[in-house]
């Protein structure tokens, strides 16, 4: 298996997020099928090196996914409050 950094080497900068996203989505889909699209979108806003670290480290990925889920739930809760008011 090649190191994750080799994913990015031949890719133009505009395609790097796309390639990282495809791999990240596959991993997150196994954890949270219903939220994979949103969680992947959130994590892709991070630095490419952080995303690479997630692809290499399941523990790091899970911690960042948990963080993203918490942020997403907080955001959605605020949206509900906003709609009620």
């Amino acid at each position: 298996e090649s190191p994750a950094t080799s994913i990015l080497a031949p890719a133009p900068s505009g395609d790097q997020k796309q390639m990282l996203g495809e791999r990240l989505f596959c991993l997150i889909q196994t954890m949270l099928p219903s939220l994979a699209a949103k969680i992947t979108g959130m994590l892709l806003e991070l630095d490419n090196l952080d995303v690479l670290h997630m692809l290499e480290s399941p523990e790091f990925l899970r911690s960042k996914v948990d963080e993203a889920v918490a942020v997403l739930q907080d955001h959605e809760a605020k949206q509900v409050v906003h709609q009620v008011m």
């Binding site: 996203g21 892709l44 806003e45």
Partner: peptide, 26 residues
């Protein structure tokens, strides 16, 4: 804007070109 915050976060779908925040806040 309020409109874009409702659509946050941008969703990533395999095979669809990723535009990030630009996709929800043009």
């Amino acid at each position: 804007s309020n409109g874009s915050s409702i659509n946050w976060p941008p969703e990533f779908h395999p095979g669809v070109p990723w535009k990030g925040l630009q996709s929800i806040d043009p």
